[in-house]
Amino acid sequence: MKPFTYERANSPAEAAAVAQTPGAKFIAGGTNLLDLMKLQIAAPTHLVDVNSLSLDKIEPTPDGGLRVGALVRNTDLAADERVRRDYGVLSRALLAGATGQLRNRATTAGNLLQRTRCPYFYDTAQPCNKREPGSGCSALDGVSRQLAVIGSSEACIATNPSDMAVAMRALDAQIETIKPDATSRSIPIAEFHRLPGDTPHIETVLDPGELITAVALPKPAGGKQIYRKVRDRASYAFALISVAAIVQKDGTGRVALGGVAHKPWRVEAAEPELPRGARATTAALLDGARPTRDNAFKLPLVERALAAVLAEARA
């Protein structure tokens, strides 16, 4: 690791003010950041440890939802009784990701900010526009089996690796933040992650130093809540594709996809097709997809996974 200095933050506002300095980064669970620092893909010069900020509660909101503190560990969010009962798709998505050891450390906010696992982002001997803006994209003509099929650009075909964020997209979560000037805002998850365009190194709409303090879940959506993840191993592997769905008794519902794009992929205009089945819905969801030769299989895989999810919802 490159040398860095370290401090423990005493308040969210103070943490945000310190972290707006170029080279500074927040650290919470550290499960992704330290991995990247060891490989010198990330090389912060100053770490702001936010673990002692009291952002680790899950509390009811006045409108009947839940407010999940930024530092709630993935294990605790997945195991929370209210989440298991009312937001099953979120519990399921969390439990489908990583390992017990990692979920015990990884936080809610950190999960939203984790970086892509594109092999060329990790290979520092290869060009990557996300790691080194302007250097080129090795994945376009490389091994792209895992990578994006929609919303990608000539500069980047990386995917967002999070399972949790896919469920949160289906749940219409809001991401609450505090900025270095101590103002706060609430960002709909639909707007939180960016598509790569020609600036794939900028992955979210957060400003420098802006700290996530919580994720607010709206009041429970009811219905059958299902998260289906398709991966190369039965456990501890990133998704080839995943489907987060909330399906009501009348067949209407919502669906978000993981493993297909630079952000959790949801197209609200496709959802009226849900009662007509997986084929019609997938056609609308993935309209405009531009897969590579290596990952064209993801399109029929999404359709089949969604068909299985809809069958499970009817059962």
Binding site: Y6, R8, I27, G29, G30, T31, L34, D35, K38, L47, D49, N51, T75, T99, G100, Q101, L102, N104, R105
Partner: peptide
């Protein structure tokens, strides 16, 4: 592996198992 992929470094911190390779000692005051 020193990257959280193998679990050989698993220890129990405050009752919970974690990968000791993916956390800084100074974060555990």
């Amino acid at each position: 592996c020193d990257h959280g992929q193998c679990g050989a470094c698993t220890v129990i911190v405050d009752g919970r198992r974690i990968n000791s390779c993916l956390t800084l000692a100074v974060m555990h005051e």
